[in-house]
């Protein structure tokens, strides 16, 4: 008799606990909203225009795109048909056009996976410059672009191609890293 009186309360507690667990599980509503996958956009904008202002309050970078998708994973933005117009104070205007781009780190780094055309206006007394490349990185804080892929640069008096480049917008220099082939057309006197 003594054994059963000691076992009965424990058994009752176990049974009660089990009932509570079953009820709790049954009370959970099925997941109604499908969990967004990390590589899926949580924000999509069509015909998007974004303007970034410099410290002087003037427009620094004007970015338009057919479509802008924000991905929570890594807080990146994918841009379709982006067109970037960059007007840093004291520097010739730079226009960057590409079929696609990915903006990272709050727009301080932009990656153009496909073909890219960078058109830079002529500085005073200088010549305009167009750089056609692919897989280009652009650091908008340092005003610096680079790529390890083949590149071609065209200016009024010279046309030069190579593999890999670095373009420093602040210094207004273009550096081709290897396999350089070029033609220089002397101005007709």
């Amino acid at each position: 008799m003594l054994g059963t009186t000691r076992i009965l309360p424990v058994a009752l507690l176990i049974m009660l606990g089990g009932l509570v667990w079953v009820l709790n599980d049954a009370a959970n509503l099925p997941a109604l909203a499908r969990q967004a996958k990390p590589y899926e956009a949580d924000l999509i904008a069509s015909r998007a225009v974004s303007v970034r202002f410099g410290v002087d309050g003037q427009p620094l970078a004007r970015l338009t795109a057919d479509r802008m998708r924000h991905l929570p994973e890594g807080d990146t933005i994918w841009l379709d048909q982006p067109h970037l117009r960059y007007t840093a104070p004291g520097q010739p205007e730079l226009i960057v056009v590409s079929p696609q781009a990915r903006s990272e780190q709050k727009g301080s780094r932009i990656w153009f996976p496909g073909t890219v055309a960078l058109q830079r206006a002529a500085p005073p007394g200088g010549e305009s410059l167009t750089v056609n490349g692919s897989a280009v990185w652009l650091d908008t804080n340092k005003d610096f672009a680079w790529s390890a892929d083949p590149v071609r640069a065209d200016s009024k008096s010279y046309h030069v191609s190579g593999v890999g480049f670095e373009a420093d917008m602040k210094q207004q220099t273009l550096f081709l890293k290897s396999n350089v082939v070029g033609v220089y057309e002397a101005k007709r006197r």
Binding site: E127, S155, Y158, T173, F175, V180, V181, V183, A186
Partner: peptide
């Protein structure tokens, strides 16, 4: 009067000073 053709390992163009270094 003919165009100048260039080949080199590296090339740097300075848009401000219009100096080019191969």
């Amino acid at each position: 009067e003919k165009p100048v053709n260039l080949k080199s390992d590296q090339f740097k163009a300075d848009q401000k000073t219009q100096v080019r270094v191969a």
